[in-house]
Every structure is written in C-alpha cells, then in structure tokens.
C-alpha cells in the first residue's frame, strides 16, 4: 500500500481560498473540511505524481458550486455589511472592507477565477483545469471580474472621499 499524500501542507492555502470565496470563516472551514473528506474518500482517483494542490482545489470548486446551487434563488446578497460610517485614519480597515464587499458582489464564477489567478497564483491553464472550463472562458471571466472590481473599488473610494470631506 502506498503512503497517502500529505494533505496537511495544503491546508493553509485551501483555507485562504475558502475564506476569500465565502468571506465567512466558519463557512470557509466547513468547506475545507468537506474538501478533505471528499479527497480522502476518493484518493484512489488521484493520480500519484499529478498536482495534488490543483486536484484539491478542483474538489473544493465542485463542492462550492453544489452549495451555491443548493441555496439556489433563496440566496440574495446578504453577506455585505451595511455601510458603516468610516472613522478617520482607518484606511486599512476600509480597504479590507471594500475588497470583501466588492468580492461579495461579483458573480461566483468571476470571483473564483479572480481568486484562483490573483490570490492563489494558478496559471490560466491550471485555473481552467480546476474549474473544468476552456481557457478562453477563464480569460473572459478574468477580464470581466477585474473590470467589475475596478468599477466597484473606484465607486467605493469616491463615496469614501465624499464622506471624509
């Protein structure tokens, strides 16, 4: 019997991706836990020598998509904190909230591509493999995601500037 691959070393990055995907630490760790359970149950389907990290992210992607589907239409955008007045000198916190809120407004498919490429530094072909879509789809989603984020973050900072003045 071959030694099982070590999943522990992938935990920190799975947690980072899940956290960014859900922006909820409890939900994120549940997603990681489900991913690990599925990985261990299907370990015989993993090709030794192939990229374990990409395989784990693929499993997580499938679980995430299933969750979204299961929630279906009932999910409205509830994960955006209501606009809070900004206290002076908290630029860091403000930016962190902006990016959280902006991610929450992105359609899931765009959010996933943006995070796989921009945060997890997957190559375009790897991201396509994880998501099970052609590379052209990755590129078009990435372009839309980045432009949507740019508009949202620009709008946020405009609002902020007016408020601070």
């Amino acid at each position: 019997m071959r030694a099982p691959p070590d999943l522990i070393e992938h935990l920190p990055r799975l947690r980072r991706y899940a956290r960014a995907l859900t922006r909820d630490s409890g939900r994120a760790d549940d997603l990681v836990q489900d991913t690990l359970e599925r990985a261990l149950a299907r370990l015989d389907r993993w090709q030794p020598g192939s990229d374990l990290r990409a395989w784990l992210f693929t499993l997580m992607h499938n679980l995430f998509v299933n969750q979204i589907r299961a929630r279906g239409a009932q999910e409205t955008v509830i994960d955006d904190a209501p606009d809070q007045p900004v206290s002076g000198g908290q630029f860091e916190a403000l930016v962190a909230r902006d990016i959280h809120a902006a991610l929450g407004h992105l359609p899931e498919a765009q959010r996933e591509v943006l995070l796989l490429v921009g945060l997890e530094q997957f190559g375009y072909a790897e991201a396509a493999q994880v998501l099970g879509v052609p590379i052209g789809t990755v590129m078009s989603r990435l372009a839309r995601a980045r432009e949507n984020m740019r508009r949202m973050l620009a709008a946020e900072s405009a609002v902020t500037l007016r408020r601070v003045k």
Binding site: R16, R19, A20, V95, A96, I99, G118, L119, R146, L153
Partner: peptide, 9 residues
C-alpha cells in the same frame, strides 16, 4: 486588486 487580495487574505 491582486495586492489588496493578498493583503486581505
């Protein structure tokens, strides 16, 4: 955006 993502997560 990439820098913000890294900073946040």
């Amino acid at each position: 955006q990439n820098r913000l993502l890294h900073g946040a997560f």
